[in-house]
Simulated scan of single mutants.
Amino acid sequence: MAMLLPRATDPVPTERLLLTPIGLGDVDDLWRLYSDPLVARWTGPWSYDGVEAWARDMASRWLTDGVGKWLARDRSDGALVGRGGLSRMDLAGEAVLEVGWVVRDALAGRGFGTEIGRAALDWASTFFPALPVIAFTEVHNRASRAVMHHLDLRFEGIIHREGLVEGRDGLHPDAAFALYRRVP
């Protein structure tokens, strides 16, 4: 009997999670996730229509890019934990995969971000081994930077893009982000 090779869109099991490619059927769960105050602080504010458009974009990215974000559910009971995965992007003229994660407020600090990130790094090694993997977050997002450290990503420096600035309200066009890279 021939062994079936994994497909990029197959669910990805981890020790505690089941990661499934995000699609339009996930809008209500994503709305719940992005409505958490801590999640909204770093990723929002979101409207329901915005979440729906983002889910549509993710479903499209899985089709066109062959990569995207997953919804993360607890393997034991199916409860929503968060989302994470990879996105193709251009970083100063270099094609890269960007790894990211978001975990529900009530579950923060339990290693789920690291578990999602580790699964994404393993997935990238299988399906896109030639592409570099990076991660970035606002310089003052200590929780995400700790996850990057746990994933053994190397600090590369500071980049500037639209984002949050510590001590100031709203988005700013030239916020400082800490850039990390997977060491080959």
Rank of each mutant, 00 (worst) to 15 (best):
A95L: 15
V102E: 11
L164A: 02
A59W: 10
R61S: 04
I158M: 02
G50Y: 02
E98S: 14
R75K: 13
L4Q: 15
P21I: 12
I134C: 03
A120Y: 00
G163I: 01
E156P: 02
P13M: 12
P21E: 06
D74S: 13
M1R: 15
G109I: 07
L91T: 10
L91S: 09
V67C: 09
E115Q: 08
A108K: 14
L164K: 02
P13S: 15
L19M: 10
G113L: 06
P129K: 02
M148E: 04
G25D: 10
F155Y: 14
P21L: 09
P37G: 05
E15H: 13
E162M: 08
A135R: 01
F136V: 00
P173S: 03
H149D: 12
E156R: 12
G85T: 06
V51D: 00
V27W: 02
D152F: 09
A40V: 06
P13C: 10
G163C: 05
P21V: 13
V165M: 06
P6Y: 14
H150N: 14
I159E: 09
R110P: 04
G117Y: 00
R88L: 14
A108L: 15
W31Q: 00
F127P: 01
A146F: 05
M148H: 05
G23R: 06
D29C: 06
L38W: 08
E166V: 00
D74I: 06
R161V: 00
V39S: 01
E138S: 08
V183K: 11
A120K: 02
A108H: 13
L151I: 03
R181N: 04
A175K: 02
E138Q: 07
W101V: 09
V139R: 02
G163K: 06
V103K: 09
R181Q: 08
E94S: 12
A79N: 14
L91G: 05
R88V: 13
L24V: 12
S76A: 15
A135F: 00
R16V: 01
E166D: 08
W31D: 00
M89E: 14
E166A: 09
W123M: 02
G113R: 05
F155D: 06
R16T: 05
P173E: 05
D36T: 09
A143Q: 08
A40Q: 07
D10M: 12
L5D: 13
L33N: 00
K69D: 13
W62T: 04
V139E: 01
D105E: 15
S76C: 11
E15R: 15
E138L: 00
P37T: 07
W42P: 00
Y180S: 03
T126W: 11
D77V: 09
G44Y: 00
I159K: 08
D90S: 15
E94I: 10
A55V: 01
T9M: 13
A176R: 03
M148Q: 09
G68R: 00
M3V: 15
R61W: 11
A146E: 13
G113A: 15
L24N: 12
G113D: 03
A2D: 11
A95Y: 07
L151S: 03
V103W: 04
V103D: 06
W123R: 08
M89I: 06
G23F: 06
E15Q: 14
L33I: 07
E166W: 07
F112V: 10
A53H: 12
D122V: 08
W101M: 14
V139F: 01
W70Y: 12
D10G: 11
V67M: 03
A108M: 15
R145T: 05
V183C: 11
